[in-house]
Amino acid sequence: MAHPTSSSDHERGSDPNTRLYDPYRDLQVPSRYLYQLPTSHEFVFVEEAKRQRRSWGDNITFYTGTSCLGGAVAGGASGFVTGVKSFEPGDTTKLRITRILNASGHTGRAWANRLGVIGLMYAAVEGGVNAVRDSDDVWNSVAAGLATGALYRAARGVRSAAVAGALGGALVGVAVTAKQVLKRYVPI
């Protein structure tokens, strides 16, 4: 239930030394102060600011997103080729376009899901290895590649998991080495 107030209460508080809260008082600030936002990460703890790597959440978002997008593009291209190969002599243009779109969508979706899961697993394992070893070096990435390959194919048996783990570790090792060579010899 609302209590009736007099107009003198609105103009001045019940105590002559106080004033009422005005939510619109600070809105007369120049806009340059409102929109000068920081361009770097803000950290709560100094220890976090000293580390020069992405956080675990950033890695999961980055690896999962790029893997999913890469899988969708590669799968869509593969589906496009499959759709073109499935043309029959009497097909109309509309039917040919439909075949291409269906094949591209189906294959792209499947590849995006597979590679997105692999990216998610890799980011989680790499974050775990970084936390356990408390260092950020090439061996963490290679170990994450080994574990990701082995985990991805573990349901198909020990041999398949071992081969996939070796391939994952080798692939990540080549990628990390290529990145270091690129950093050293190409001025970007």
Rank of each mutant, 00 (worst) to 15 (best):
P187C: 08
G76V: 04
V132A: 06
Q36H: 13
T98M: 15
G79N: 00
E47R: 10
D137F: 06
H106C: 02
N140W: 13
K179T: 14
F43S: 11
T61R: 08
G13R: 09
V132N: 03
V81R: 11
G105T: 00
I100Y: 02
W139M: 13
E47P: 00
N17L: 10
Q36S: 10
N130M: 14
G13P: 05
F62D: 10
E126C: 15
A2L: 14
Y185Q: 08
A164W: 00
Q180H: 14
V181W: 13
T64I: 03
A110Y: 02
P30E: 06
L34K: 14
S14E: 15
T107Q: 12
V158S: 09
T18N: 10
A72C: 01
V46P: 07
N59D: 13
G116A: 07
L171P: 04
V84Q: 06
G105A: 02
A131W: 09
Q28L: 06
L115V: 05
A123Q: 03
R184D: 05
L151E: 01
A170P: 05
S6D: 15
G116P: 04
Y33H: 13
D136R: 02
V73F: 07
P4D: 08
L151V: 02
C68K: 01
R54H: 07
S78N: 14
P38G: 09
L101P: 01
A150H: 05
A2G: 11
F80Q: 02
V132Y: 13
S67A: 07
V129D: 13
V186F: 12
V84H: 04
A161N: 01
L171F: 03
S67P: 04
G65T: 13
G79Q: 01
T82H: 06
N59P: 04
V117G: 00
Y185N: 10
K183C: 10
A162M: 13
G90W: 10
S7Y: 12
E48V: 02
S14D: 15
N113H: 02
V73E: 04
N17G: 02
A112V: 04
P30K: 08
I118S: 05
R32G: 07
N140S: 12
L182K: 13
A162K: 09
P23M: 03
A164G: 03
L27N: 12
A178Y: 07
T39M: 12
I60E: 05
L101T: 07
V129I: 15
S31K: 14
K183E: 15
V81H: 07
G157Y: 01
T66D: 06
E11K: 05
E126I: 11
N59I: 02
L120M: 05
R184G: 07
A49H: 08
L146I: 14
D22Y: 00
K183S: 10
T148S: 09
S135M: 13
G57N: 10
V84Y: 06
G168T: 05
Y35G: 01
A77S: 14
L37H: 12
G119V: 03
T66N: 11
G105R: 00
A175E: 09
R156H: 11
G79R: 00
G105Y: 01
E48Y: 04
G149Q: 02
N113I: 11
L120Y: 01
L167C: 08
L151I: 05
V73I: 15
F43D: 10
P16A: 04
S40K: 09
V73S: 07
R12F: 09
T93Q: 15
